[in-house]
């Protein structure tokens, strides 16, 4: 009886754990397209925030950017206010951490 109870407990725990993992992996990744209304570099230049006006909802979304490639584009103004951006980010605490941040325009 004790052994059977242990097995049931393990199964229940594993089920709940897998549910939690799947939920966090799939629910937290967000993709939006929108126009930049503000870019603000951190004082140490190792991160920046960009505020995008989501094309679909019209709401302002603040994204935190930490990858060097995008930060460099902010520094030399290849990406500026008014550019339309396609971005993918993950919610980590109260921050939206960018996983992809690309201009939609091309030639």
């Amino acid at each position: 009886m004790k052994k059977a109870l242990s097995v049931i407990m393990v199964v229940v725990v594993m089920f709940l754990a897998s549910f939690t993992v799947v939920r966090s992996a799939s629910a937290e990744e967000v993709k939006i397209t929108g126009v930049i209304t503000k870019i603000e570099m951190a004082a140490d230049k190792k991160s920046a925030i960009a505020v995008l006006k989501d094309n679909k909802s019209g709401e302002s979304v603040t994204i935190t950017i930490t990858d060097d490639l995008t930060l460099d584009k902010f520094k030399d103004h290849r990406i500026v206010d008014g550019d339309e951006i396609r971005t993918k980010f993950e919610k980590e605490g109260d921050k939206n951490i960018s996983k992809m941040f690309k201009k939609t325009a091309g030639c």
Binding site: R78, K102, K103, T104, A105, G106, C107
Partner: peptide, 11 residues
């Protein structure tokens, strides 16, 4: 600067 956005967008 140029070769990334050819063909209608980044990459």
């Amino acid at each position: 600067v140029c070769h990334e956005a050819a063909g209608g967008g980044a990459l």
